[in-house]
Design a protein around this nucleic acid. Structure first.
Length: 415
RNA sequence: GCAGCUGUAGCUCAGUUGGUUAGAGCGUCGGAUUGUGGCUCCGAAGGUCGGUUGUUCGAAUCAACCCAGCUGUACCA
């Protein structure tokens, strides 16, 4: 048979095993535990959608839509896109599945998302997010609950120390439009001083100039008008209620008047949990209120708030999760003892005791191999030609030792 | 996107100014020793030296291009 060249993994994808996988699983487990405490129900939504779901909702001019989407035609010629985020797909499901009947709806999801980008530390083409949304709740209390939820996830993961919550308001549609117009006017006046990127942003997405890191943009960005001057009394009050709620919950935050979101549908609250520890990939959890999104998808005006966090980035920040070690490792030191070993092994596992047996390779080396497994109880099995004998080695009085001993004895084993 | 670094056995890495058959440790497999033991010893398998093209009598080593990974930066979770 001709040797074929082994296909390469797709760039920016990951195969996880061992510690990497343990970290990944730990993040999801913590999310799932906390999510129940806050009454967020788990939902499953497709990994791909009609391209319009994302193109329409994210905003045609955002980077994600303009150049980072995995878009392809299916066999019928329809344009499909692998989800670059959760929110738009969930909003679509909310409309098409009649989830409006459950409003206000608190939901949690996790899974792979896809962006066509240059892979590097903490960034992949297929990466994974945990995601939380509240749909159909217009009140600031929803923002507060969502943020406190996020904060608790980070706390339970033990990463909240190096992480700060940055908070801003983008106002309502009216506020945002007025502010946007003022910003365009301001930046047009400084056009000559701006970086090429920001001149481009000026036409497409002027808010983004505010958080530009290009030093050429900083003077104009720093002198740009704050949104505060454009906030209506209602929007100012909304933001105040959010911050008061956070204070009541004891969640620390800092105002970042330059914080804007990359996607177009955000209103009111915008936030990011940021760490210094991941270099330029420092945003660890981000979100905001998206009161405009569901309308943009053709639905009725429906408020929503949500956030998403990159699982890989969180996984890099946490301590190594401790593995629950194997309880029993058995060494079949004689091939004639293998059947007896299988019987005990099965009985142990059926009793809820984790167990493995080493029965391959040189019989003389099996014990040494078993000692390297670091299980709580080591059982060696020998055979004298008549019957198998079991020998336990562990700390004698322990619960595990006694349970294993009892199971072996109940099967008529000797030791 | 931009910049820099790296790519040799399953893993971690040596490899001299270009020169015989490319090495080590760990792991795997076999054997010896031990016989209530995690030690020690012997042996074996395992390599298109990331890929292609070139320079040369001769390339893991030099050059060009490509691919991949890492680090930083932009943008993003």
């Amino acid at each position: 048979m001709a040797r074929i060249e082994t296909p390469r993994p797709i760039r920016g994808t990951q195969d996880m095993i061992g510690e990497t996988q343990a970290r990944f699983a730990h993040v999801i487990a913590a999310f799932d535990r906390v999510r129940r405490l806050y009454g967020f129900q788990r939902v499953e939504v497709p990994v791909f959608e009609a391209t319009a779901v994302f193109a329409r909702s994210l905003g045609e001019t955002t980077d994600v839509v303009a150049k980072e989407m995995y878009t392809f035609p299916d066999r019928g010629g329809d344009s499909l896109t692998l989800r670059p985020e959760f929110t738009a797909g969930i909003a679509r499901a909310y409309l098409t599945e009649g989830w409006q009947q459950f409003a206000p709806l608190k939901i949690a999801a996790s899974g792979p998302v896809f962006r066509y980008e240059r892979p590097q530390k903490g960034r992949f083409r297929q990466f994974h997010q945990i995601d939380a949304e509240i749909i159909g709740a217009a009140e600031p209390l929803a923002d507060v609950e969502l943020l406190v939820f996020a904060d608790q996830v980070l706390r339970e993961l033990g990463v909240s120390d190096g992480v700060t919550l940055q908070l801003n308001t983008l106002g309502d549609a009216e506020t945002r439009d007025a502010w946007r117009a003022a910003l365009v006017e301001h930046f047009e006046a400084h056009r000559a001083d701006l970086s090429e990127d920001s001149i481009d942003r000026l036409a497409r997405n002027p808010l983004r100039i505010l958080d530009s890191k290009d030093p050429r943009d900083r003077p104009a960005a720093d002198s740009a008008p704050d949104i505060d001057a454009y906030l209506t009394p209602e929007t100012a009050d909304f933001f105040a209620k959010v911050t008061e709620g956070l204070d009541a919950a004891g969640v620390t935050w800092t105002r970042n008047a330059r914080l804007v979101r990359g996607l177009d549908y955000y209103r009111h609250t915008a936030f990011e949990f940021v760490t210094e520890r991941l270099g330029s990939q420092g945003t660890v959890l981000a979100g905001g209120r998206y009161d405009g999104l569901i309308e943009a998808l053709g639905g009725p005006a429906t408020p929503g708030v949500g956030w998403a966090a990159g699982i890989e980035r969180l996984a890099m920040l946490i301590d190594v999760p401790l593995e629950s070690p194997l309880t029993v490792i058995m060494a079949a030191e004689d091939d004639r003892a293998i059947q007896d070993g299988i019987r005990v092994l099965t009985a142990l596992r059926r009793s809820g005791i984790s167990a493995e047996m080493i029965a391959t390779g040189s019989p003389r080396k099996r014990y040494d191999k078993a000692t390297k497994v670091l299980a709580k109880v080591l059982v060696s099995i020998k055979h004298d030609g008549e019957k198998a004998t079991f020998d336990l080695k562990s700390v004698p009085g322990t619960e595990e030792h006694q349970m294993v001993e009892a199971i072996i004895q109940s099967l008529g084993g000797q030791h």
